[in-house]
């Protein structure tokens, strides 16, 4: 049976179920490096979500899937993901943890835990539900 690692808000409902190795991108230079490496399409991108704008280039250049740790489907990134039809799971939380993102009250340990659990893992995204997006271990 499927092994759901994390869930979050689904930016939009789609049958597309991209899979790849999770890659955490923490700043604009890492986005640029990934684009230039030509390996953008191999990864599911993981970002904090607050600094969503630096992810825009990845979407333009063909990112296949995105996981954010904060931010709502009603945000610039949500809007862009729908426009590009790139599956996007937002404000994801680990099923194995009780830690949840609360705007203004969450510290780095919450994000670090998620990065630790997901970075480098082979996953697929299930965004077929109208509200909940899922990150599934392959």
């Amino acid at each position: 049976m499927s092994n759901v690692l994390a869930e979050g808000y689904n930016a939009f409902e789609t049958n597309k179920s991209p899979s790849g190795r999770v890659k955490y991108l923490s700043d604009p230079p890492s986005v640029m490096a990934l684009i230039r490496s030509g390996r953008l399409g191999e990864h599911i991108l993981l970002v904090r979500g607050g600094t969503t704008t630096f992810l825009a280039p990845a979407l333009s250049m063909g990112a296949i899937g995105v996981i954010t740790m904060s931010g709502a489907p009603e945000s610039h990134l949500g809007i862009l993901s729908r426009e590009f039809q790139t599956p996007c799971v937002m404000t994801a939380w680990l099923l194995s943890s009780s830690s949840r993102y609360v705007p203004g009250e969450t510290d780095d340990s919450h994000f670090d835990e998620i990065v630790k659990a997901l970075d480098g893992v082979e996953v697929s995204l299930d965004c077929s539900d109208s509200l909940v997006g899922r990150v599934i271990a392959l």
């Binding site: 979500g49 607050g50 825009a56 009603e74 610039h76 809007i79 426009e83």
Partner: peptide, 27 residues
């Protein structure tokens, strides 16, 4: 319209010297 708005938002935030995190819409 969305591209222009997106850029403008970034622009005004940078004019004000604000990091993006603080400016995301409240959930």
């Amino acid at each position: 319209i969305h591209s222009i708005w997106f850029e403008f938002h970034e622009d005004i935030l940078t004019v004000l010297g604000r990091p993006r995190d603080v400016a995301e819409p409240a959930e």
